[in-house]
Design a protein around this nucleic acid. Structure first.
Lengths: 158, 158
DNA sequence: TGACAATAGGTGTTATAACATCTATTGTCC
DNA sequence: GGACAATAGATGTTATAACACCTATTGTCA
């Protein structure tokens, strides 16, 4: 009776399988890194998600991007991109212009202010990442990237 | 002039250093795994954080734990544990009892309902983790865990 | 061409997170 | 033993995330 055995052993911490241990480590590590990153961004009035949008828009060039395109490019799932962009527009970081050809389309673009901010952040962000992960060797980083990429491919039925 | 060079090359995606690539992969992988996990928990009316608390309290035994102790054991940073516990108490998953010896202390304990829920979730949670990460070999998982652990030790000045 | 699905985006509402500040209780030290 | 720092926890308030649903515009096809 598997169920009884599990019942008896609980309270200790057995059955922390390797996959669970990996998942716990992943969550913990991401949390630690993210916290440091948010700390860095806070004085500039934005969070990690907004920073992400700034990078995406900078990469997209002058034409800008539509809401759904931005959503799809974000690292983390984020419904309600509309109001995220609302806030960024209010903060003067982006502007939105509705297309005249297809009036359903609204392109979001960086303002000079947004562009300047993300440019100014390049160095401190790189420095923070270096500080956090710079003690890993190149080989270790490559392996880590490889394993994380592999981890995103589920066994079956994506 | 480094600054000018950077200025000229922007818009492309150069300067994605290994450390940044690692960080991006970490965030992305965590997001994907977390989304699947939340999906699994949703039918049970809790999220990943509450599930975490349930596991922590189960591990703590019958005496329960104080608010700060729970906060410190959580995987991810979480201010406002008070209202998280409020919600769980309202949902009948935990109870809080104030100590008579030191009236500052309030122990939070699992109710039978909370205990049953976390017990019932053991199998589906294990299965989900297996589904997500089970295609990695034991050696790969060990390496991943090792590297993630290493990544949490910053170079200097914690 | 007119109904209707598809697409892009927005809004209303509720839940949760984040931040700062507050209260109660206990320990400590002059 | 009385002032005061320290500790444990709670509360007020604002911002953000999550979820379901709505509006406008365009494409398509009988």
């Amino acid at each position: 009776m598997t169920s009884d055995l599990r019942h008896d052993l609980r309270q200790q911490k057995p059955f922390i399988s390797l996959v669970q241990e990996a998942q716990l480590n992943l969550a913990r590590t991401e949390s630690v890194l993210l916290a440091g990153f948010e700390q860095l961004l806070k004085p500039h009035g934005i969070g990690a998600t907004q920073y992400n949008v700034l990078r995406i828009l900078r990469g997209a060039g002058a034409e800008g991007l539509g809401r759904n395109e931005i959503r799809d490019r974000l690292l983390t799932r984020m419904p309600d991109v509309t109001r995220l962009l609302d806030r960024m527009e209010k903060a003067g970081l982006v502007v939105r212009v509705r297309s005249t050809e297809d009036r359903r389309l609204v392109a979001t673009r960086l303002t000079k202010r947004g562009r300047d901010l993300v440019d100014r952040l390049d160095e401190p962000v790189a420095a923070e990442h270096q500080r956090r992960l710079g003690h890993l060797t190149t080989a270790e980083l490559r392996t880590l990237i490889k394993l994380l990429t592999l981890a995103r491919q589920p066994r079956q039925s994506p």
